[in-house]
Design a binder for these strands. Structure first.
Lengths: 85, 85, 85, 85
DNA sequence: CACTGGAAAATGCCGC
DNA sequence: GCGGCATTTTCCAGTG
């Protein structure tokens, strides 16, 4: 018989490590972002406004994406192929 | 001069792009994490418990940090320097 | 009927008042806490360290809770029921 | 000699206990507020909008207060007494 | 698909 | 007055 519990334990350890590793990376990037804002502030930019601008751009990007998705849908319905991806 | 309405447009663009790039990376990592959980689930692990385990480990690490921080404070109060960093 | 623009005005007023009342109480307590710290400072205590001590105690309590929560999860996973509450 | 360290320890304990007690009360009130929102939600109100309304009222209250403060200032400058408080 | 719980963002506060 | 930190609020993903 295989060492079932041992295998599960190994898997578990692997999962936990992978997640923790990824979360560390994510955290590191979050800190990079904070640094960018700090630098921007040091250069006289208002971070609150900056955040709002970036947030707005994200919303617009989402909307654009949705519109493209709808467009693709229509094109598929018409038997047309989408431009690229 | 490249200023538009009194702000350095180039700088602004650079900041926005850097933040957006970093946020994309962050998002990509978040998706990687989701994949790990999905795979774990497919292998029979209970994701809720997994998340709790990882959360607990984080809390424990956090407590260790807090203890160190307070130790440093005590040492400062006693006029001792904390050991290097 | 007391509805204005489709909403129950009386109910709305009641909700808003209750929340605002509670927020006032909360704020009052926050000020009490500040007073305690101010008094402590006046008696020669270092507030930063005090805050850290209290914070650490909170983290410890929190970890205990997390451990109990995960224990419950394990017991559930093993088909055992947690001991009442 | 008085038991200096002992006295300080007593004071410290007292401070910590008072703060923790107050924070518990604050937390209890926070939970009451959540309950009010939950109840409101159960009655069909949109909590996000409710929060916004209450937030707006708070801002307006602040503004009113500031205006009154200015008014008091002017009245003092003119040798007039403020109405009550 | 609504709800709960946890992560992220925003705000306010304290100390320097 | 500002920078960092803690709290609070908001948002979003996961769950049932």
């Amino acid at each position: 018989m295989e060492d079932v519990a041992g295998v599960a334990a190994d898997q578990l350890r692997s999962i936990v490590e992978r997640v923790e590793r990824l979360e560390e990376e994510k955290q590191a990037i979050a800190e990079d972002i904070k640094e960018v804002y700090a630098e921007a502030k040091a250069n006289g930019f208002d971070t609150k406004t900056l955040r709002k601008v970036i947030s707005l751009r994200k919303v617009e990007a989402n909307e654009r994406q949705e519109q493209e998705a709808i467009l693709d849908l229509y094109m598929q319905a018409l038997g047309m192929v989408p431009p690229s991806a």
